[in-house]
Design a protein around this nucleic acid. Structure first.
Lengths: 228, 228
DNA sequence: ACCTGAACACCGTTCAAGT
DNA sequence: ACCTGAACACCGTTCAAGT
């Protein structure tokens, strides 16, 4: 209809847009959301971008660096607490860490990468700053807070890596059942403490245990004897 | 010299011993100790045992199950605290978890597997029982102890997975340096709390931080408000 | 039952060569 | 500088066929 037509490439296939870091990353994000991180391979992204895998190495150092960038992109969606409402700092930390855990739980493979990655993206730094701010508002001394933020974020990441819904290795809950029955079948004489705690070891929902864990970590930070 | 000779196989190559679960596992352990977990592949073990990879599936479910067995074999070397010396339970827990962390740090890849694995081997159960016993000796209530042992062991595993000496992805300390400089270069106006804590975020040795973390977790368990 | 060869369906990364 | 095809050096797992 319009008199000006977009020039069409030879042989009337749609023009192949030039490669770029953003282009690679946005395809990576889409494939991750639609099919999971395990499908985000150099070869798959290359095919999606109509080129060979070697071409991606102009825009991406390697797979690990790309995972770090994907993690940062996910963190961008995290709603950070607004100002410094000192009253409910405790609920705010737990809520924030809970939200972070939930985001990672959608991509357990990425959580597993994040454990090894030492993320340093801009959104990750914002997250660390926000947690530090809340701990400060709660009156937790700076060294406790500095070391504590690592502990809190590590727990979130490890928990997400552990859960591994559908992603990960075949039947995750097959392993859980095996662990449950191993504990139940253990000789009570050889494992008296295991036997005493057997009903509590697997009690509670994931949600309850996550909030308990964050709460317990905050208690430990507030107690602040640490180190000795 | 001896009149009785061991029968020699045809063509005088050493007789190929029959395959067995123990044989597979002991080769796996040796390769892991000598060359790292990343070399423990089905194909490599098969070559070492002079057969094809398919043959191993008679004795091993899959790679994940073999990793679980390797982890349990490592835990067997862990010296568990002797009796119930209630006086120094705190030091005993920290020492035990420290030893566990150290064992896993030698095999970061295995630590990474262990995070997803829900181990249920006999030696792992002994370890859980020992930790529960020490927490009990310290007067920590059974539910706190039951949920706490997960938290403590998860921290040990995640820390070992994080450290990743030489194993793992290329240059681990390259990533650390990048994280350090990202924190140092972050805009102080945008990241006031990060800026305030910047010198403490990377302070301390791995050893100091590990002991601090375990200590802080125990403080949290002892405080015992958890859950709300 | 145990063992095997061969195949299936993939990987990340490098590198010489082109434009 | 950017892009490519082809290669290098591997993976875990399955399966039909043999013994």
């Amino acid at each position: 209809m319009s008199p000006r037509r977009v020039p069409v490439s030879r042989r009337d296939r749609p023009a192949k847009p030039p490669l770029s870091r953003d282009g690679v990353m946005s395809v990576a994000l889409r494939v991750m959301r639609e099919e999971g991180l395990e499908r985000v391979t150099m070869r798959r992204l290359a095919a999606e971008l109509d080129t060979g895998p070697a071409s991606l190495y102009v825009y991406v150092d390697n797979l690990a660096e790309m995972h770090a960038a994907l993690l940062d992109a996910l963190i961008a969606d995290l709603p950070l607490p607004s100002g410094d409402d000192a009253g409910c700092w405790r609920e705010d930390v737990i809520g924030l860490l809970d939200a972070y855990t939930r985001i990672l739980m959608g991509h357990p493979g990425l959580a597993r990468s994040a454990l090894v990655l030492r993320p340093s993206g801009p959104h990750y730094l914002r997250l660390v700053d926000a947690v530090l701010g809340l701990l400060h508002a709660g009156g937790i001394p700076v060294r406790q807070a500095a070391w504590g933020v690592d502990l809190l974020l590590q727990h979130a990441t490890a928990t997400a890596a552990e859960q591994g819904t559908r992603d990960g290795s075949a039947d995750a809950d097959g392993e859980v059942r095996q662990q449950v029955s191993a504990v139940r079948d253990a000789d009570p004489g050889d494992h008296p403490h295991l036997h005493r705690a057997r009903d509590e070891l697997f009690s509670g929902t994931g949600e309850q245990r996550a909030r308990w864990a964050f709460s317990t970590l905050l208690d430990g930070l507030a107690a602040g004897r640490g180190g000795d």
